[in-house]
């Protein structure tokens, strides 16, 4: 049995805005084992990033968590003190963001950005690093991220690097502290296909070498397919399906998942089928039962009243839908 690294149990989260509460997360269930690679897919605005930010405890101040637990190695992150959270960020969890340009401070050289992170990552331990040791660590990290000529890059400002290089710098930053968990929030979305391919392959290799667990968030379904063991599908603040990657793509069970796969343009041609009708629900007043119910072709009376829970369909394939209960 694999060791459970992170587990999210029934996470409910609201955003407080002027008009009231946006009920975004509606009982998110999620888990990841040690050394496992997990994908998370869903439309924009379905709460992928919000879920990840609640793991990092970097939510905006208007976010209110109303229920649920996030257990990291058995300890609840949500009730941990700020010191413990800092220690988590220092040693255990790190995150790569979607837009590498926004993630790097434009007024500092890469070297300054790196030395800050390296110093922060060893702050609690008693030893102090010399300037040379910091630089050596930075060069090593950049090399691990397959960047050519690390010494020169350290002297550059972010603006002097190309998009692919910037994202690699971000990956190198995330690699500095020896991690248990790496959260990659759409790491290739802003890059071109050939470069995205390079970045994803690099991430895959690094994770395999170091035995790190990774959560890969994306709305590019194909990108997820090549890299991860298991995939979660998220819709409007709920996890609707989870399965091993091959099972999910060959045999999607939830009506949302199968519709989503249909709308992806295929290389084989033959046109694009009609989109899923309707739009993502209004978070002010989301549907009471299953949140996909108003857009679903198979909706039943029960769907309007109750929220479905995960049901195991065998071989780790779980689906939250009344069609299968």
């Amino acid at each position: 049995m694999q060791e459970r690294l992170l587990e999210i149990q029934g996470l409910h989260l609201n955003y407080k805005v002027y008009e009231g509460y946006l009920k975004v997360l509606n009982g998110v269930e999620f888990n990841i084992d040690k050394g496992e690679k997990v994908g998370l897919i869903g439309e924009s605005g379905c709460g992928k990033t919000t879920t990840m930010r609640s793991i990092m405890r970097t939510l905006p101040s208007n976010a209110v968590i109303t229920a649920g637990k996030i257990l990291f190695k058995g300890k609840d992150i949500l009730t941990a003190s700020m010191d413990e959270v800092q220690s988590l960020r220092r040693n255990n969890i790190s995150m790569i963001f979607q837009d590498p340009t926004a993630a790097l401070n434009p007024v500092f050289k890469i070297e300054e950005i790196f030395s800050d992170i390296i110093r922060f990552s060893v702050r609690t331990s008693s030893k102090k690093l010399t300037k040379d040791e910091i630089k050596l660590k930075a060069v090593e990290a950049l090399k691990a991220a397959a960047l050519p000529d690390p010494e020169r890059i350290l002297q550059n400002y972010p603006i002097q690097l190309s998009g692919g290089m910037r994202q690699r710098v971000c990956i190198a930053m995330a690699l500095i502290s020896s991690n248990d968990l790496l959260i990659a929030d759409e790491p290739g979305t802003n890059l071109d296909v050939t470069i995205e391919d390079q970045i994803l392959r690099l991430l895959g290799n690094l994770v395999n070498e170091r035995g790190t667990s990774i959560i890969l968030i994306s709305h590019a379904l194909g990108a997820v397919k090549g890299l991860v063991d298991r995939v979660y599908v998220m819709y409007a603040g709920n996890m609707v399906e989870v399965a091993k990657t091959d099972d999910l793509f060959s045999d999607p069970l939830h009506p949302y998942t199968s519709n989503l796969f249909k709308t992806v343009p295929k290389l084989t041609g033959g046109g694009i089928p009609e989109a899923i009708k309707g739009r993502i629900p209004d978070y002010f007043d989301p549907p009471k039962g299953c949140r996909f119910c108003p857009r679903c072709d198979h909706a039943m009376p029960i769907c309007e009243k109750e929220t479905p829970t995960f049901k195991d369909m065998g071989d780790k394939h779980e689906v939250a839908c009344f069609l299968y209960s």
Partner: peptide, 8 residues
Amino acid sequence: LDVSMQAK
């Protein structure tokens, strides 16, 4: 845009 909107 998202894939489902893109199709539309």
